[in-house]
Amino acid sequence: MAGFKKEKPTARANYPKLHASDPLTGFDAETREKVSFMENYIMKNCLWQFNSRGWDRRKQNEGILGKTTKLLLGEEVENETPLEKCYWVDAVLLSRAFRERCAWLAGMGKDEVQALMKILHARIDWLTIDGSLNEELTVQNY
């Protein structure tokens, strides 16, 4: 057997739930419409949100949507590891798509964009992790 770094993080399958209900509930119609538009783009065109385990999905969503937010805000994005860089490339494509398709982003202030992206992040977490019906998300091994 070849040598490799051993990792048995069985605890990783016990990641905490962040949302007990749909985080989009209660927001005004305009916000819901904007988030739904962005969500629909992600669902139709991206794959990163659907890694097979819940702990990976949490990292993917946070890594890619976090960097997307920074790119939309014009902030510098640091990619210290290859894994970070991998999040970044998906974030670059997503931020370009949002800028191209969501003309209303240009008219929003930085705080508003940040707040909107936070709601989007929560919504994607809800759909793919916390509210997901996928029974394999908590399987301990890949």
Partner: peptide, 24 residues
């Protein structure tokens, strides 16, 4: 094809630090 081969990608990431980039 993540269905048939995500396992080896996920383990290569965990054991060797090689990132996984899904494409179409």
């Amino acid at each position: 094809c993540a269905r048939s081969a995500e396992y080896i990608c996920d383990e290569l990431r965990a054991r060797y630090g090689i990132p996984r980039l899904d494409i179409d």
